[in-house]
């Protein structure tokens, strides 16, 4: 068929590769035509913004579901003899996957906080000798006494675990979550 003569498809008879750029930008053949009309572009913009809005709403909804919930009940965390003075132990509370950190500050003082930095969720390193929990990711630190941020990017305090010591055992009785 005559369609296979490539040189006849352009007015000057030169092959497609030697044609000027505008001819390739505005091809006559339908399959090569990638022109996007204003309406298509507007539709793309509207649908994409809608998808973003839905996504943000979903994130907000998921975030607000577990907020501020005080866990009740007693749960065994460790026995006092397990942890030396200035030592620490990670643990989880039943029903969550969040890691928590138990630190023995002095002989009778125990504190426990969430181990995730409130900036970008890096695990914290306990530094009881400096009285802080240190985040190596962005040089952040939290006060070991209160769980409030001391330096670096974090702005929110750590969730604090309420502890109860009876006899030789350390129990967690609840989590005070200060998440915004």
């Amino acid at each position: 068929m005559s369609l296979q003569i490539p040189d006849d498809r352009t007015p000057d008879g030169k092959p497609e590769s030697e044609q000027p750029q505008w001819r390739r930008d505005f091809p006559i053949d339908w399959p090569e035509d990638n022109y996007i009309s204003r309406r298509d572009f507007t539709r793309f913009l509207v649908l994409t913004s809608f998808a973003f809005a839905v996504g943000q709403t979903w994130i907000l909804a998921m975030g607000s579901m577990g907020r501020g919930e005080d866990r009740q009940g007693r749960e065994l965390v460790a026995s006092v003899d397990d942890i030396p003075e200035g030592g620490a132990k990670t643990f989880t509370i039943k029903g969550t996957k969040e890691p928590f950190l138990l630190v023995r500050m002095s002989e009778n003082t125990f504190v426990a906080y969430g181990q995730k930095c409130t900036h970008l969720s890096c695990p914290l390193i306990p530094q009881p000798e400096m009285g802080r929990l240190y985040c190596p990711c962005h040089e952040g630190a939290f006060d070991l006494q209160t769980g409030h941020p001391m330096m670096g990017p974090p702005r929110r305090p750590l969730p604090r675990v309420r502890l109860e010591i009876s006899g030789n055992k350390v129990y967690a009785t609840g989590v005070e979550d200060h998440r915004l």
Binding site: S2, L3, I5, D8, R9, T10, P11, F26, I28, D29, W30, D33, Y35
Partner: peptide
Amino acid sequence: ESPTCAEVCPADAVK
């Protein structure tokens, strides 16, 4: 093969 109507179209409408 090289449609003149499409060549002259300023709006790229003839395909």
